[in-house]
């Protein structure tokens, strides 16, 4: 464990909690892409199946359980409890254009051709594009609530910090996982436009609205 991975995990946890609390307290999921949240639930399910097969540490297991629990709770709030506030018209990204190519890629490019490994690879590839429906929705509505931008900032920072974690692990442990690194780079690049708007607008107290 290193500082980049720890702060990355905490940033990820913060994002998940911020979103869950935002929906729960405001009793509304306006501006939130349910499709992205479903993709994240799939990502965690496919990646954390090893909860059943191997124990790494209390930290590892508890974080995985929290991530999966919060992901499904968020999907439940969006599609069941606060369904009336779900903005389906603007959440119109065709996720099949993400899941199918990512599924195919996971079968073609992976470290080992085994079910757990392919599911892990699928979850890594899917996570790198899972935020697209949410970013697409913001571009369609032309704005985002400030709390939603904080959620996105924490979510974007988590994988950015993981990139530094991989540099650290390569330098100190000689470890690297090309699949995770390439997908992590793609994931972080997708946030660049949002990071720019977040820093130049939200941090100056303005509302995030598009076109910039």
């Amino acid at each position: 464990m290193n500082i980049f991975r720890l702060t990355g995990d905490l940033s990820h946890l913060a994002a998940i909690i911020i979103l869950l609390l935002k929906i729960w307290k405001s009793r509304s999921c306006a501006g939130i892409s349910g499709k992205s949240q479903i993709l994240f639930a799939i990502v965690f399910t496919a990646r954390y199946l090893d909860l059943l097969t191997s124990f790494i540490s209390v930290y590892n297991t508890s974080m995985k359980v929290i991530y999966i629990g919060c992901a499904y709770a968020t999907v439940y709030l969006i599609y069941a409890k606060f369904r009336a506030t779900y903005d389906g018209n603007h959440d119109s990204f065709r996720v099949e254009f993400l899941v199918v190519p990512v599924g195919g890629l996971a079968v073609l490019i992976n470290h080992t051709f085994s079910p757990l490994e392919i599911l892990w690879t699928f979850s890594i590839y899917l996570e790198s594009v899972a935020i697209l429906p949410q970013l697409f929705m913001i571009s369609k509505t032309g704005e985002a609530e400030t709390i939603t931008t904080h959620y996105l900032f924490c979510l974007g920072m988590y994988r950015t910090l993981y990139l530094f974690n991989w540099v650290w692990r390569f330098y100190f442990e000689g470890f690297f996982d090309m699949i995770a690194i390439v997908a992590g780079l793609v994931q972080t690049v997708l946030y660049c436009d949002f990071f720019y708007l977040y820093v130049t607008k939200v941090l100056k107290g303005k509302k995030l609205s598009l076109p910039a």
Binding site: R5, D9, H12, K64, T112, W120, F175, D177, A180
Partner: peptide, 10 residues
């Protein structure tokens, strides 16, 4: 193996 040690990441 490269992959196994990646398993300890979330």
């Amino acid at each position: 193996r490269v992959r196994d040690s990646a398993k300890d990441e979330l």
